[in-house]
Nucleic acid binder design. Structure first.
Lengths: 152, 152
DNA sequence: ACAGGACGTGGATGCCATCGACCTGCGACT
DNA sequence: AGTCGCAGGTCGATGGCATCCACGTCCTGT
């Protein structure tokens, strides 16, 4: 991970569809060299994939909510995590410090669907309680931060 | 937004670097047709961009936290929002229902940096108080949900 | 019936991805 | 010190892809 890799990461983070030729021009290397670098970034796990950023409303997922989950003291967090993974509405799942072990970002189409999801969550074995906060609007999401070099 | 558009969105959401030729094969159209459809999805705002999904640890952003912000009753939410936008550490910013007007997902390198960020936030005009929860680990983030057709 | 538009196809053309051959600088070993 | 081996670069070739354009087809309103 040198300065050129960092630059490539930053470029791809902003526009994942840039051609290798264009990336090469931007960093001052040849296209094959960039191709190889990006390949290494992918196989080393630095680049985990490439995603189109889709307006959720356009695909009928206009309701975003954050749900904190308190787990029962008797259950194993890993087991609960696997149950949560089954729910496609959960876009993001953090394991948190604090009483509320998990924090979920969920995306559904309607408030009614959100209600059903909350009920399902509360019925999930290992879930003691949940607390839901509704996002009225996303001012921005997943904004790529300008990168600065850092120690390895 | 017909079924083919939805399929294209789903494909690009999973792998934003697919070629138009490959997309064309997957949906059973010619490459120029797909090219035009994707162009329209972009200009209509359905596709907002393409992002490489980067392991945050690899770029020195190993600490993730969620910060709720209570705003002072005297201030305008839009003004505060603009101030928050200046802070590059804030990856996501939701405007929430409830007492805590904003919920921020922030990404920093160290706990010390997080501390500095919290101090800065609390000094920001319009911020009455903040509450921070630290993510110990991200089980998954921005997982693309399998799409189902929906009404337009 | 027919004009117009939205949307598709196929062909042409120039750029891009990707492979292989080769070069170069550096660190490790003798 | 020489030199072996490797990491990582360049260049050139070639086949595939992006993209433009001309044209076909189907629907829709008059």
């Amino acid at each position: 991970m040198d300065a050129i890799d960092l630059r490539l990461v930053e470029l791809l983070r902003t526009n994942a569809r840039l051609s290798f030729a264009e990336l090469a021009r931007q960093v001052g290397l040849s296209a094959p060299a960039v191709h190889e670098r990006v390949g290494k970034l992918e196989s080393s796990g630095v680049v985990r994939g490439y995603r189109a950023d889709i307006d959720p409303e356009a695909i009928g997922l206009g309701v975003t909510a954050l749900i904190s989950v308190v787990e029962e003291s008797t259950t194993d967090a890993d087991d609960l995590q696997e149950l949560l993974r089954e729910l496609p509405e959960i876009e993001t799942c953090y394991f948190m410090a604090g009483v509320e072990s998990f924090l979920l970002t969920v995306r559904v189409g309607t408030i009614a669907e959100l209600e059903r999801l909350i009920v399902r969550l509360n019925r999930t074995p290992g879930v003691a309680s949940t607390r839901t906060a509704i996002a009225l609007s996303a001012k921005w999401e997943n904004r790529p931060r300008p990168l600065s070099p850092h120690s390895d």
